[in-house]
Write a protein that binds this DNA or RNA. Structure first.
Lengths: 127, 127
DNA sequence: CCGATATATTTAACATGTTTATCATTTTCT
DNA sequence: AGAAAATGATAAACATGTTAAATATATCGG
């Protein structure tokens, strides 16, 4: 992922911050708990990341009116612009990796990783 | 990896520290640079890990006589005993994951990850 | 032999991973 | 209603990931 980190470093965001921004861009405003699920981050990490993104004015947060424990996070226009300006290069790199590894093997890898990740959610066999 | 971390936490070592110990146990005394390669760790991380392992008396270090920039790291008897006492449980967990994911799929996953890792070492196609 | 380079390791600084604890708010149960 | 349990988010503490810089030693070229 080095090349991706380099791309993102130019615009002063980390891989994880980028991932959070993309989740918000594609999924719309949502709560930290759901962001964490979708970006594969634990809440304590996400808390710090949201603080950084907030300082950089790439997201906004407001507490939910009906449940004041919750908050709603939304990406700012500035955040959207950052994504728009860098998404192509990121996807291009991903495609390059997919090509170099072999498209079928690449897709298989993603499937297997997803399956492995699922194992953690399921209970282990009772036998 | 949660379950493995729990096992290791009982004997006060982290996953990475465990990995370094296993590399030393299987590969014999060697330099930090080679440990880093074999345990997939960057040198700055390894430096700290070796310091911790040294404090715990699980490894010993001495500077190489012919090249005083280098050092030779070796596992102590105490370190070997720690591995001996925990290796079975670790391998058992690995086998459980392999079974739950499906042995063929598991092996395929390892192959693909290795191939992906190789990509980083190779130069990208010049086209 | 000496200065420029290269190599092995460490340090520094900042971000995240991970576990446990805490805080505020809400829900549940009686 | 009110105490207890649950939930969403944050804080704290420690370990590692990552990049850049620093240190020490060794090697190379003239």
């Amino acid at each position: 992922m080095g090349p991706i980190r380099n791309l993102l470093a130019d615009v002063d965001v980390t891989e994880q911050q980028w991932r959070v921004l993309r989740v918000l861009e594609e999924g719309g405003p949502m709560e930290p708990t759901r962001i964490a699920e979708q970006s594969c981050l634990l809440l304590p990490s996400l808390t710090r990341i949201l603080q950084k993104l907030d300082e950089k004015k790439l997201i906004q947060r407001k507490t939910d009116k009906t449940d004041r424990r919750r908050q709603i996070v939304r990406i700012t226009p500035r955040g959207s612009r950052l994504i728009e300006e860098n998404l192509d290069k990121n996807l291009a790199f991903l495609e390059e990796v997919r090509t170099r590894l072999g498209p079928e093997r690449f897709d298989t890898l993603l499937d297997l990783l997803t399956a492995l990740n699922q194992l953690d959610q399921e209970p282990p066999e009772a036998g």
